[in-house]
Simulated assay, not measured.
Amino acid sequence: MSQGALAQFLPLILLFVIFWFLIIRPQQKQQKAHKEMLASLKKGDRIVTNGGLIAEVVKPEEDYLKIKLNDDTIVRLDRNYVARKLNEA
């Protein structure tokens, strides 16, 4: 490879590096944090679903969570539909 060819690809390589640090890497960190949060859910934790429902975890299972929506309603929710965990101080 000659110097001219390397000089032509340098802006493209630089663009990819910038793209990696601004978009791909932060998204991977966010996915990792969400996966860790899902793995750490336990009985009594309050969560928000992707549909906006606020519920309490009754029993964590392998792929699902049994959640309590109110005093009378307990349903199963796929873990993939948990948006976040509520932190109540």
Results as ranks from 00 to 15, higher is better:
Gln30Asp: 05
Leu41His: 01
Leu6Gly: 07
Ile47Tyr: 00
Asn87Cys: 12
Gln31Ala: 08
Glu88Trp: 08
Thr73Pro: 10
Ile54Leu: 03
Asn87Glu: 14
Asn70His: 06
Ser2Pro: 11
Gly52Thr: 03
Leu65Lys: 00
Gln28Asp: 03
Asp78Asn: 14
Leu10Thr: 07
Tyr64Cys: 10
Val17Glu: 07
Ala55Asn: 08
Ala55Phe: 03
Asn70Lys: 04
Ala89Met: 14
Leu14Gln: 10
Asp72Cys: 12
Asp63Lys: 15
Ile74Ser: 03
Asn50Arg: 15
Pro26Phe: 02
Ala33Ile: 13
Asn50Phe: 07
Leu53Ala: 13
Glu62Gln: 09
Gln3Arg: 10
Val58Ser: 03
Met37Ser: 03
Leu38Phe: 02
Leu12Tyr: 05
Ala33Asp: 09
Glu56Pro: 08
Pro26Glu: 01
Ile67Phe: 00
Leu53Tyr: 13
Val58His: 01
Gln31Leu: 10
Leu10Gly: 01
Ala83Asp: 15
Val82His: 00
Ile24Cys: 01
Ala55Ser: 07
Leu69Val: 13
Gly52Ile: 00
Asn80Leu: 15
Lys42Ile: 08
Ile13Pro: 06
Leu53Ile: 12
Gln3Met: 06
Leu77Ile: 07
Gln27Gly: 08
Val17Arg: 05
Ala33Glu: 12
Val17Gln: 11
Asp71Tyr: 14
Pro11Asp: 02
Phe19Asn: 07
Val58Phe: 02
His34Ala: 05
Asn70Ala: 04
Asn50Ser: 09
Leu6Cys: 07
Pro11Lys: 01
Met37Ala: 02
Gly4Arg: 09
Gln27Thr: 11
Lys35Gly: 02
Glu36Leu: 12
His34Ile: 06
Tyr64Trp: 12
Arg25Lys: 14
Pro11His: 01
Lys66Gln: 15
Lys42Glu: 04
Ala89Asp: 11
Ala5Met: 10
Leu77Asn: 01
Glu88Ser: 15
Ile13Tyr: 06
Ile54Glu: 10
Ala33Tyr: 11
Gly52Lys: 03
Gln28Pro: 02
Glu56Met: 09
Ser40Cys: 02
Met1Arg: 10
Ile18Tyr: 04
Glu62Asp: 14
Met1Thr: 09
Phe19Leu: 12
Trp20Arg: 14
Leu41Tyr: 00
Gln30Phe: 05
Ser40Arg: 03
Ser2His: 02
Thr73Cys: 13
Leu53Gln: 08
Glu36Val: 07
Arg76Asp: 13
Met37His: 00
Val58Ala: 04
Asn87Phe: 14
Lys32Pro: 05
Leu14Glu: 09
Lys59Trp: 04
Arg79Thr: 02
Gln30Met: 15
Met1Glu: 08
Asp63Tyr: 10
Phe16Asn: 08
Leu22Ile: 14
Val17Phe: 13
Leu38Ala: 00
Arg46Val: 11
Val58Asn: 00
Tyr64Val: 11
Ala89Trp: 07
Gly51Asn: 13
Lys29Asn: 13
Ala5Leu: 09
Arg46His: 14
Lys29Thr: 10
Ile54Arg: 09
Pro26Ile: 01
Arg76Cys: 07
Ile74Thr: 07
Ala83Trp: 14
Leu41Met: 05
Glu62Gly: 10
